[in-house]
Design a protein around this nucleic acid. Structure first.
Lengths: 223, 223
DNA sequence: CAGAGATTCAAACAGTGTTTAAATCATGAA
DNA sequence: TTCATGATTTAAACACTGTTTGAATCTCTG
């Protein structure tokens, strides 16, 4: 039965797992370390969550749920906002979700979630579906507004380019930090990165749009 | 001494490791499976390579070396080629390196290498340095030509946006394939993806350049 | 209070990467 | 040739992992 003590060890486990996973990553954390930190028996992980994988999934899913609640992808957007403003709000929300709220634990969890989204094991398909699907669809809709009467494949490519920029800017941060500290992207605020990606992407979309027009509007120049 | 038999087991090991890693990924590959496939003793991996990690590193490094030889980042580029052509050639070479030459083993290795570049353990810093540094610097130089008299930070951001698009287009392919098969990016050739990313990025750079000019050229409008 | 089901616990299990020390091999000097 | 030295191979063990097990304990319900 799920009464008080049940919730207690299950929650203690989830809480400890969040911290240990954030500190050591998935591979380097042991179930024994999590249980020791939570003060519960070793078998509790498999009893309450089924496996180390599923516990990890639960941690990432809770992180995503909280981040999605805290950072909507359409903040300050109304019915008559321009498509450009929608795109800016989307990028800001997206980066905020991944980069977190200042809590270093959440920042690390965001990175782990992204790693899992980029390279999901079958076990994580559910969370990937739940996280990627609605998030990507929202982006697609915004780009679609800017590119009416355009092949869906091209709209998907634009959306992919935008998502790629966001993901790399977050994900590569740790790598750049270690390999090329002189680049020092660390000092950039989310605001300035948001502005840059938005402007760069708007320029890209404009060029795609112009290219489309120039290659389509002249009716049969050869005939 | 490194005579014939030495090279023989070491090479057999490297060859077997390449195939097993490509088929099962790093985590799901056991040293025992590699040794069985190579027909050598279990301890050979640690004797000849030091560890499973270092063997993996050797596999990825050889893959990168071969791919870099086969696909230069400045194919068909001469002294007086335009910056735009240089960027197109770079993107094409970059995608070719990662997507491979049609050999499914190399395609999988490209994905594994990218995963390692995006999320390198300390053990892989050397290969990351050797692969990322010159590759990124070449891209930076090209973008720098298009944005003279611009803050290095902005040039880096542009280069990062371009790299992000390339990485996501390759890396996400497997994910999209499984989660959103209806998107069917699979049918895209490297050529069309190259053209799209190049045009999108040229538009982005143009917009950054225009923004820069409009905010800099009017001398002291407030004074 | 009794018992049935949920939960905890210590112990063991099967698998991993790695190490070890002896056995084997190859090579070059006497 | 002989044989000693160093490189290589081998089977066995080691330390560690995630997971399972079956008994012990707890917690409620009838």
């Amino acid at each position: 039965m799920n009464s008080v003590s049940d919730n207690c060890t299950k929650e203690r486990l989830l809480d400890a797992a969040k911290k240990v996973f954030a500190e050591y990553g998935f591979d380097e954390t042991t179930v024994r370390a999590i249980c020791a930190r939570a003060g519960v028996n070793l078998a509790a992980v498999n009893y309450h969550f089924g496996s180390k994988d599923k516990l990890y999934l639960a941690v990432l899913e809770e992180f995503f749920r909280l981040a999605a609640d805290k950072f909507p992808l359409n903040a300050d957007i109304g019915q008559n906002s321009s498509s450009e403003d929608k795109l800016r709000a989307y990028i800001r929300g997206f980066l905020n979700r991944l980069l977190g709220d200042g809590d270093p634990i959440n920042e690390k969890l965001g990175r782990l979630l992204m790693a899992e989204l980029l390279n999901p094991s079958e076990c994580f398909d559910t969370i990937a579906q739940r996280c990627i699907h609605p998030t990507y669809d929202a982006l697609y809709s915004i780009v679609r507004e800017m590119l009416p009467d355009t092949d869906a494949a091209i709209v998907h490519r634009c959306a992919g380019s935008i998502a790629g920029q966001c993901l790399l800017f977050d994900y590569a941060r740790g790598v750049i930090q270690r390999l090329r500290p002189e680049l020092a992207l660390e000092a950039d605020s989310i605001g300035s990165v948001t502005d840059f990606i938005a402007e760069f992407s708007l320029g890209g979309i404009a060029r795609i749009l112009a290219e489309k027009r120039s290659s389509c509007s002249p009716p049969n120049p050869s005939a």
